[in-house]
Design a protein around this nucleic acid. Structure first.
Length: 365
DNA sequence: AGGTCCCGCCAACAG
DNA sequence: CTGTTGGCGGGACCT
């Protein structure tokens, strides 16, 4: 429902728009809060969207990501079932196996193994197949977000790099770092994924010691509160600086959009597909002569020259719990209000024992 | 001045 | 055609 109306003029609407309150990460946390309790067995997308106060489109995003790591499973049109975060370790294990088996990544752009077809932008990673059930479940255009997500975690699971920059990840997934357009798009997607992963504490953002560039470190599922009754992130610490959300449905006060470049988009799109196709193929050659000391290497940016076989490096450490969302919930509404109260309480008790260190990081020292 | 990444257009499908 | 899904990338937001 492309609603675009409703409260645009807030009394003292300085700028009540706070991007972070609408982040996928937060949405993911809220999503979990909503469904991660024995009760609910079936998740209706519409239901979720309205309960969480977001557009349906966004639900697809988190659901796709969650599905790729087993947290939810598609049951049918509009229907998903909650499997729980407890499924994560299993899913990760499976992904790791898969990755090793397929000799994951590396191998630049292996056209012979490409998943894409036709006018596709090439995913050049060797992705065998969904695995899940041998069915044709996702005949769809290789569900990108789903796929990208899995490949992203495989990247972590298969390399001993303990830090990966989104750029390098994008490069690895694309197999071609020269196509800036594709790279940009891929990175955008990775940001989305990184966001929800961060909120789940699967990864953590840091900065590469040398390059100073932002990078992500894999945390894995080691110290998670493992289901139980705890849900990690309904958190919210001090109002950072903006007022407590005033909007409720997220579809209010949107940044004004000039809205105009639609036509242009098309052309670009077509062009891109064309380019990618070529570059992808051509890339095979490039890569070959592109140094790479390892048999089939893709360069992992500054961190990983390694081959990959060895895995696991349990970097783990309970880390700072990042508090995936240091922001107050914004998708609130009745239902969530209750949930929130509940989770806040649970969280508090849990937080009390877990926080050995902690200091509710503020973002700006 | 970039790094992030929300938002929603619209294509591809399903019915 | 209507309703679902979900690529994709413009450009607002946030350091």
């Amino acid at each position: 429902m492309s609603s675009s109306v409703s409260r645009e003029f807030e009394p003292n609407s300085r700028s009540l728009y706070c991007r972070k309150e609408k982040s996928l990460g937060l949405l993911c946390s809220n999503f979990r809060a909503l469904y991660d309790n024995g009760g609910v067995q079936t998740i209706g997308l519409d239901d979720a969207a309205s309960k969480l106060g977001v557009e349906r489109r966004r639900i697809y995003d988190v659901v796709n990501i969650l599905e790729s790591i087993g947290v939810v499973a598609r049951k049918g049109k509009n229907q998903y079932s909650w499997k729980g975060y407890g499924e994560i370790p299993r899913a990760l294990e499976k992904l790791k196996e898969e990755a090793l088996k397929e000799n994951f990544l590396i191998s630049g752009c292996n056209k012979s193994l490409r998943v894409s077809n036709e006018n596709e932008s090439g995913e050049c990673v060797n992705v065998k197949n969904p695995s899940e059930s041998s069915k044709h479940i996702d005949s769809k255009r290789e569900k990108s977000l789903w796929l990208i997500t899995q490949n992203f975690v495989k990247l972590f699971l298969c390399s001993n790099a303990e830090m990966i920059t989104l750029d390098s990840a994008a490069g690895a997934l694309l197999g071609d770092v020269n196509n800036s357009t594709a790279m940009r798009t891929k990175v955008r997607r990775l940001y989305d994924i990184a966001n929800v992963f961060s909120s789940m504490n699967l990864i953590e953002k840091t900065h590469h010691p040398d390059s100073r560039k932002p990078a992500f470190r894999w945390l894995g599922w080691g110290g998670q509160p493992q289901n139980g009754s705890m849900t990690t992130t309904w958190v919210f610490n001090e109002p950072k600086k903006r007022m407590f959300g005033t909007e409720i449905t997220n579809q209010s006060l949107k940044r004004m959009k000039a809205k105009s470049s639609v036509q242009r988009k098309l052309n670009q799109k077509e062009n891109m597909a064309f380019h990618i196709k070529h570059e992808c193929v051509e890339n095979d050659h490039k890569l070959e002569q592109h140094s790479q000391q390892s048999s089939k290497g893709f360069v992992f940016g500054p961190f990983l020259p390694a081959v990959m076989p060895s895995v696991n490096k349990n970097v783990r450490s309970v880390r700072d719990w990042e508090l995936g969302s240091a922001y107050k919930p914004q998708y609130l509404n009745q239902a969530l209000g209750d949930l929130f109260a509940h989770y806040m309480e649970a969280w508090k008790s849990w937080y009390a024992e877990v926080s050995g260190k902690e200091e509710c990081h503020h973002l700006s020292p």
